[in-house]
């Protein structure tokens, strides 16, 4: 490799890679939609302690969280057609994208189910009881009282899941899907400018992730408005503008009360 790094190629490659952005986003959207659906279905038996289904959903979650997504991708791509052949469904002509979205959807489903479970369990039991006490039905109590609170708790983790999914779509190239990473690989080997293509690729991913993070943060703030009261968190680092080791020792005078500052 005798060439130097040429920044002009990066700018040249970015529009070319953006052509395949829609496939990446399609995978993300499909996987998240499927994941939300599956996650909800899987979380319910464990929340309501339904005997056998509860164990099945436990195993499902354990498996999908316990194996790498790349392995799952191969497993489904090679395994699913064979299994479905036994019940006389022919998947050999099915598009690869289907397997990718299915795997990613089931993978996120496991994480989403844990997310939902944790969020619902985090809502104080007294809230439901209070809802019952004022005469709400079970459905009303869930949609009016538990869901809004659980949503606010679930959103930070959920946004992490979405961002992880965006990054995981880069694995789809291993099955030959022409999404952004796959395109970058081809572009790299075509022009022999690997470094520039991957820098361009990284820039695009970075922009997508930062934008998504901002958008989801807005949603998070909006949903968490009811929680914005003074919290009594006294961390040994928080609320200081700049704190060197010396300053920390000097600032020990306790009459100086700190104003709580919320992290952006």
């Amino acid at each position: 490799m005798e060439y130097g790094f040429d920044i002009t190629y990066v700018f040249e490659f970015i529009p070319k890679l953006l052509d395949t952005l829609n496939i990446t986003l399609f995978i993300v959207a499909g996987a998240i939609a499927l994941g939300l659906f599956v996650g909800f279905l899987v979380a319910l038996p464990r929340l309501y302690h339904i005997p056998v289904l509860q164990n099945i959903s436990k195993i499902y979650v354990s498996f999908f969280r316990g194996t790498p997504i790349l392995i799952q991708l191969f497993l489904f791509y090679y395994g699913l057609p064979e299994i479905l052949k036994l019940v006389a469904i022919d998947l050999s002509k099915a598009p690869v994208l289907l397997f990718v979205i299915l795997t990613f959807g089931l993978h996120t489903g496991a994480y989403v189910s844990e997310n939902i479970r944790a969020a619902v369990l985090a809502v104080n039991r007294g809230q439901v009881e209070a809802a019952y006490a004022v005469g709400m039905t079970g459905y009303q109590a869930f949609t009016r009282i538990v869901l809004p609170q659980a949503l606010a708790i679930a959103v930070p983790v959920f946004s992490n899941l979405v961002l992880a999914m965006v990054k995981d779509t880069s694995l789809a190239f291993t099955l030959g899907v022409m999404e952004m990473t796959g395109k970058a690989q081809t572009l790299g080997s075509l022009t022999q400018r690997y470094m520039e293509t991957f820098v361009a690729l990284a820039i695009i991913y970075l922009i997508i992730c930062v934008t998504l993070e901002r958008v989801l943060l807005i949603a998070e703030r909006r949903l968490n408005r009811h929680n914005n009261r003074d919290q009594e968190t006294r961390s040994w680092f928080k609320n200081r503008k700049r704190a060197s080791l010396n300053q920390l020792t000097r600032e020990l005078n306790l009459d100086k009360k700190e104003v709580p500052r919320y992290e952006a």
Partner: peptide
């Protein structure tokens, strides 16, 4: 940067 880009990109960037 690292948290905003896939692990695969880091690997490929380092590799090349």
């Amino acid at each position: 940067f690292i948290r905003g880009t896939p692990m695969l990109t880091h690997l490929l960037l380092i590799y090349f």
